[in-house]
C-alpha cells in the first residue's frame, strides 16, 4: 500500500521542491516531511519520494541509510536520544543511560513493547552547556539527573 500524504504535507512538498534549481535537492526536506507524517521511512515512501523527485528509488535509499536521524523502521512515540559524547560523559551520561535502560526496561536501540519509547544514544547534540542532556523527539532536556529523568518520563503520556 502506498503511503498517502496529508493535504497539508502535499502543499508543503510542492512549495519545498520549488525552492531548488534541481528537484532532487529537495530530497532531505521531503524525507523530513515523510518521517513527520508516517514516523519512519518505509520502502513504499522511498518509492513515492523517488517518483516525486524523478530519481531512482535507490538514490533515496542511499540517503535514508546514510543520515542517522532517518528511521527505516517504526519507532516509539517518544524517541529518547541521550548524548554520550564527551561533555555529557564527563558529567555522568553513562550512569543516566544505565538508569534509563533499567527504568523503561529496554536496551539501546530497542522500543518498548507498548510502542511508547525508543531509546538511543547519540553524538553531541550541541547543547553541551547543559550537559548531561537528551532529546525527546525534538525537545531538548538538559542538566539531567535521575530525578529530572523521572519527572520527564512521568510527563510523557
Amino acid at each position: 500500500m502506498s503511503p498517502e500524504f496529508s493535504d497539508q504535507a502535499k502543499k508543503k512538498i510542492r512549495e519545498v521542491i520549488s525552492r531548488y534549481p534541481k528537484k532532487e535537492a529537495a530530497l532531505l526536506p521531503l524525507l523530513h516531511i515523510a518521517q513527520q507524517e508516517f514516523g519512519h521511512i518505509s520502502t513504499e515512501s522511498e518509492k513515492v519520494l523517488a517518483e516525486m523527485l524523478e530519481i531512482k528509488p535507490i538514490r533515496v535509499r542511499e540517503a535514508v541509510t546514510f543520515y542517522t536521524m532517518l528511521n527505516r523502521r517504526p519507532i516509539g512515540k517518544y524517541h529518547i536520544q541521550v548524548c554520550s559524547n564527551l561533555s555529557c560523559s564527563i558529567l555522568g551520561a553513562e550512569t543516566l543511560i544505565d538508569y534509563l535502560k533499567k527504568k523503561i526496561k529496554i536496551e539501546i536501540g530497542e522500543t518498548t513493547p507498548d510502542g511508547k519509547f525508543t531509546l538511543s544514544t547519540v553524538e553531541c547534540l550541541g547543547n553541551c552547556e547543559e550537559a548531561p542532556c537528551m532529546q525527546v523527539n525534538f525537545d531538548y532536556n538538559g542538566n539531567l539527573d535521575k530525578k529530572k529523568i523521572d519527572s520527564i518520563l512521568n510527563s510523557l503520556k
Binding site: 559524547n85 564527551l86 561533555s87 553524538e123 553531541c124 550541541g126 547543547n127 553541551c128 552547556e129
Partner: peptide, 11 residues
Amino acid sequence: DEGEPGTFKDR
C-alpha cells in the same frame, strides 16, 4: 551544521 563536539555557539 554545528556538529563539532563541544560546540553550541551558533545555536
